[in-house]
């Protein structure tokens, strides 16, 4: 561009007047949340006099007035669930500098071809993961979920593509006696929760469930996106039920429980402190931190005594 302004962020930080604010939002989590945070910080920079600097590890807002920056920080925390760190200058200068310097830059977001290239050579033990669940107030495992471990990609579209590929490979491994040993060993006596791709079980898969009235029959988890085609979903659901499976949905957002009508289906969602308004018959609460409202009958959670 016209003027090569190569201002070092340390110089900018040092030059801030007394009472100014430094607000740092690390480049973590979904890209969408990062971009929203950046836009709010830029607005605060306009309102409060200052600038937003893009550092390798995140965005740094330097605001001559602290109030707009604090407000932006609160809005960012409310929207994304991540509270940006804030320091009043010059007292917090040293801490701010250390924080900005030590945050490593995130991995670049892969393209479609790169993602395929990353997933293809992964061996079954690399991605297959077994999680144990207790029910209600208990700490003893009663259920086990077999599915692909999330890759932690910042783009939900890529993550769901990868889940789809890995689920298919996992199913193939489960159906093939030669590969079955590569999967984590299933514990006998625990109810099985199995992640399935959008299309459900492949035709002719020898994966039988249990009797339709068995309360411990295995649960097939389909991604919420599979409901976008109601006719196809109904066909997959009845096929699974006929084969002796209970059917559930897996989603990356607990509020989907409130929004989407899903009679007779179990749900697997990451849970937070707030309980959803609508409780399904069976909720599979994902996440190591188990909030108190999850310790009731009808909710499977990861709070296993080790």
């Amino acid at each position: 561009m016209g003027f090569p302004v190569a201002q070092d962020w340390r110089t900018a930080l040092a030059a801030m007047p007394e009472g100014a604010l430094a607000l740092f939002s690390p480049a973590r989590g979904p890209l969408a949340a990062r971009r929203v945070a950046r836009a709010l910080m830029e607005e605060a920079a306009v309102l409060g006099g200052g600038q937003v600097l893009a550092l390798p590890g995140g965005d740094l807002l330097l605001g001559a007035q602290a109030a707009p920056g604090h407000r932006a920080g609160r809005v960012i925390a409310g929207l994304t669930g991540r509270v940006p760190e804030a320091w009043i200058l010059p007292a917090g200068r040293r801490l701010a500098e250390a924080r900005c310097r030590d945050t490593t830059s995130p991995e670049p977001v892969p393209g479609l071809a790169e993602l395929e290239a990353r997933c293809a050579p992964m061996a079954v033990p690399d991605f297959a993961r077994l999680t144990l669940f207790a029910e209600g107030a208990g700490h003893r495992p009663v259920a086990q979920r077999l599915g692909p471990a999330p890759l932690g990609l910042p783009d939900p579209q890529l993550e769901s593509l990868a889940r789809e590929w890995l689920c298919r490979r996992l199913l193939a491994a489960l159906a093939d006696p030669a590969q079955r040993g590569l999967l984590p060993a299933l514990r006998p006596g625990l109810r099985l929760v199995l992640d399935l791709p959008r299309g459900g079980l492949p035709a002719g898969a020898p994966l039988r469930g249990a009797a339709p009235d068995d309360p411990n029959r295995p649960i097939a988890l389909l991604p919420l996106s599979s409901r976008a085609d109601p006719a196809r979903f109904a066909a997959i659901e009845s096929e699974l039920r006929a084969a002796g499976w209970a059917v559930g949905l897996v989603a990356a957002e607990a509020r989907a429980l409130d929004w989407v009508e899903a009679p007779g289906l179990a749900w697997a969602v990451p849970v937070g402190d707030a309980s959803p308004r609508h409780r399904p018959e069976l909720l599979i609460a994902l996440g190591r931190a188990v909030p108190g409202w999850c310790r009731v009958p009808g909710i499977l959670h990861e709070g296993i005594a080790s």
Binding site: P30, G78, S160, S225, A251
Partner: peptide, 21 residues
């Protein structure tokens, strides 16, 4: 699109809250 809500409910939740703010 309703289909996008089902494909990415977390993204929709963010956009929903953003619109209200």
């Amino acid at each position: 699109a309703a289909e996008e809500l089902l494909a990415d409910p977390a993204g929709f939740a963010l956009v929903h809250d953003l619109s209200q703010r």
